[in-house]
């Protein structure tokens, strides 16, 4: 059975948008394809008429400083992101998350755009980007716009993007200032579904022995990737002592909605792991922030 009938190797963003708009049936952007093709083949997604390949669009593959932000192209392969000194400098959480996805063969093809476009509540790249307060750059026939990443998600697997008119072209992340740092951690299970039981991204700004600002994302803790704002608040202005961390963990457990997933983890275990991840991820970011 042909799951798509037309494959367009786009050469530019306008070319890709045109191909999307002019497709004679349902169309989809394809980047690495390591998830999308399997979703099509295994029937998790209905067949499409046209696939628009964006992997050759140079503007979507760059990782660079742009207007005092870090720009990461949506079609940059994960290995390129992992290897980028800019990402290592400004977005440690993203570097760590991308290094954990798949093996090298998958990372040579898979992209951050694909990771986000799938809108899964515990995608490693997405969780890291959420903690890093990323904005998504979206191209339409009418030009480009920026939107907070978090607004792209409607529900599990449901993206707010209009697939025939809009495409994700990249992500803008604030540059890291002195006293700021981030970290990403996850816990897996060796059997069954190869998706993190729980993953977490933490960004923080440190002044002396106090956290002055923090962003924490955790997945899966609801239908979409999300920030834990009450937990962030609970940490602000405080030093991450075990007492403070224990209190923050209590806030986190009240705030996050952990569920039991079949053959993956129970709510109880997720709650247990969340407290451990919070301590480990937060302290890693804290140490990094202190180191400059």
């Amino acid at each position: 059975m042909q799951l798509w009938r037309h494959y367009h190797l786009a050469q530019s963003i306008p070319d890709a948008l045109r191909a999307l708009a002019e497709a004679e049936g349902p169309a989809s952007i394809i980047a690495g394809g390591t998830d999308l093709l399997l979703d099509l083949e295994q029937g998790r997604r209905s067949p499409v008429h046209t696939l628009v390949d964006v992997t050759r669009i140079e503007a979507m593959r760059v990782v660079e400083i742009r207007n005092a932000s870090l720009f990461v192209g949506a079609a940059a392969p994960l290995n390129q992101i992992v290897a980028s000194p800019l990402v290592a400098e400004h977005a440690q959480a993203l570097n760590e998350a991308c290094a954990l996805i798949g093996g090298p063969q998958v990372r040579n093809a898979a992209t951050l755009g694909g990771n986000v476009a799938h809108a899964l509540p515990a995608a490693d790249g997405t969780i890291a980007l959420t903690a890093l307060n990323a904005q998504a750059e979206i191209a339409t026939q009418n030009g480009r716009r920026l939107t907070p990443l978090i607004d792209l998600f409607l529900g599990p697997g449901q993206s707010a993007l209009n697939p025939q008119e809009e495409m994700l072209t990249g992500f803008l992340l604030p540059l890291r200032a002195r006293g700021e740092a981030s970290a990403f951690r996850r816990v897996m299970r060796p059997q069954g579904v190869a998706i993190a039981i729980l993953n977490m991204g933490v960004w923080l700004r440190r002044e002396g022995d106090r956290i002055v600002k923090a962003r924490i994302s955790v997945g899966p803790s609801g239908p979409t990737p999300r920030r834990l704002r009450a937990t962030e608040q609970a940490l602000c202005g405080r030093s991450p002592t075990s007492q403070v961390l224990a209190e923050a963990a209590q806030t986190l457990l009240r705030e996050a909605r952990f569920r039991t997933s079949r053959h993956r983890a129970t709510t109880t275990y997720r709650q247990h792991v969340a407290a451990i991840l919070l301590e480990e991820t937060l302290l890693t970011a804290w140490e990094r922030a202190g180191a400059g």
């Binding site: 494959y7 394809g33 093709l37 696939l51 090298p104 093809a109």
Partner: peptide
């Protein structure tokens, strides 16, 4: 290295 089973020939 890439996985040729999920790499469109095009």
């Amino acid at each position: 290295p890439i996985l040729s089973c999920v790499y469109p020939a095009v």
